[in-house]
Structures are given as C-alpha cells and as structure tokens.
Amino acid sequence: MRIQTVNRIATSIIILCAGIMVTIMLTILGYVLFKGIRFVDWHFITTVASTFNVGGGIKDQLWNSFYLLVITMVFTIPLGVAGGVYLAEYAPDNRITAFIRSCVEILASLPSIVVGLFGMLVFVNTFHWGYSILSGAIALTIFNLPVIVRVTEDALRAVPQEIKEASMGLGVGQWYTMKKVLLPAAFPGILTGIILSAGRVFGESAALLFTAGLTSPDLDFTHWSPFSENSPLNIFRSAETLSVHIWAVNSVGIIKDKVAVASGSAALLVIIILLFNLAARGLGALIQKRMTGK
C-alpha cells in the first residue's frame, strides 16, 4: 500500500475515535436529560420518597445530598488547604514529605468503595455512630481530601515567585505571607477546584452505601433542632442521598415506578453537576478578573 494511503486511513481512524468520544458524551447527556426531564417537576422535588406506592418524590434525598456536601466541605476545605499549603510551602525535602506525597497519591487512587468500607468499619461499627451523616461526611472527606490538597498545591505553585519574595523581602513572616499574599493570589484556582470537587462529592454513591445508609427517617422540616431524631440538621441520623437513591430503587427497591424515579433523579443529578461545573468556571474567571482588573 502506498504510504499516502496508509496515512489517510490512519488519519480517518483517529478522527473517527474523536467522533466516537463526542458521540458517547452527547448520547449519555441526551439520553439522561430527555428521558428524565419529563419526570422532574415541582411535585417530584417536593414530595417525600415512597417505599411501596407509585408517585414518590425525592425531597429528603435532595436535602440529604446538599447537607452531606456542606458537612463534608466543612471538614475537607480546612484540612485539604492546610495539606496543600504544607506541600507547597512548608514541606522540607525529606522522607516525611515524600511519605505524605505517597499518602495523597494512595488516597487519590483508592476506589471509593474501599473508603466506604473503612468508614463502615471505624465510624459505623467501632465508634457506634451507626449509619449517619457524620460517618458519611468523614468517608467523603477522606475521598475528597487528596483532590483539594493537589488543587491547593498547584494553585500556590502557580503564584509568581516574585510576589512571595517581595513579601518576604519586607520582613513578613512565612505564615503571614501565606495568609495575606499567597492564599489570596491562589484563591481563584483553589475555589474552582473546590467547586469541581463538590460536584464529584455530590454524585458519589459507593462510599456512602455503608456509611450514610440506604434509608432516611421521615424528616420534619418544621423542626430544626440538630438533636431531634427527625430534624433535617441532625448529623447522627441515616441519610440516603440522591445518587444512592438511584442505585437503591433499581437494586433493592420494590416500587413500580422505579424507572420514572430513577430517570428523574438521574436527570436532576446531572443538571446539578453541570451547574457546579459551570459555576466553577464562571466564578473562577470572575474573581480572577476582579482581582487583576483585566
């Protein structure tokens, strides 16, 4: 065969690959949205899920997803940013630092179900917290920590060295430089990373099966004391999230309209995650613009 012909065939195959990739994305998105969106209405979002009957909604699951996300972020952001700051600025070049880097790498590549099993073993069984929001949030923290650490470290390393040197040159200490100069400069990058990881946490399910549980008590949205059994704010109650609900209605549920519930939930989940992605890009660019004045 002539070399030119081979070249042309190979090029077409490569273009075909890219085409397949785009087709898969469009198919998935189109299928989930078009199949699910007609089940999503105000009734669906504001009705509680039903165990036996047709016509259940996802009110509690939606609330649980957001609440769990907030609690997880309360744990993850300080720890992750501290870890990232350590690796970018404080870490001496020694064995301990290398070990911490390995730990971050290991945590990042462990399957989420392994993190869920650890959460079950330690928080649910050993600490007797049971299936609870707290157990789930700590499992998600372990799952999300390496992402925030890396994002913070990368964002800090991207800050021009001159800014840091200027601050240090004025006699400002390391921590004060970090707090007032480096972290603000790295803020847009860190924020973008945090919102993107929030989307990941929002859709996570395997880590939550055995930590936050497959059920939710009947939430009483007029009762906000965090210590009451049915309070939406109680962190020691079990909490089924939206993504766990999609799995549960298909795998262990017995309701007849599971296709409607699962498709509607999936469409809502994908829309929320796409919004997270858009927000991450938009906010990052906006803050960058405000800060640099460009």
């Binding site: 720890l79 940013v81 870890g83 404080y90 911490i100 730990c103 650890f118 004060y176």
Partner: peptide
C-alpha cells in the same frame, strides 16, 4: 498573627493525611 500557630495548623493538616492513609490500610 502567630507564626507558630499557623505552622501548627498546617502540620495538623499534613498529619491527618498520614493518619487517614495508615489507619485505613491497617484497619482493612
């Protein structure tokens, strides 16, 4: 504005990463 307190906060973050990884492995 203590430098020392800042350092402690940062070191705690790093320590928790180690504790999480090691305890996860050992327990499982």
């Amino acid at each position: 504005e203590s430098e020392l307190r800042g350092k402690w906060l940062i070191y705690c973050g790093a320590l928790i990463i180690i504790i999480a990884t090691v305890s996860l492995t050992l327990f499982l």
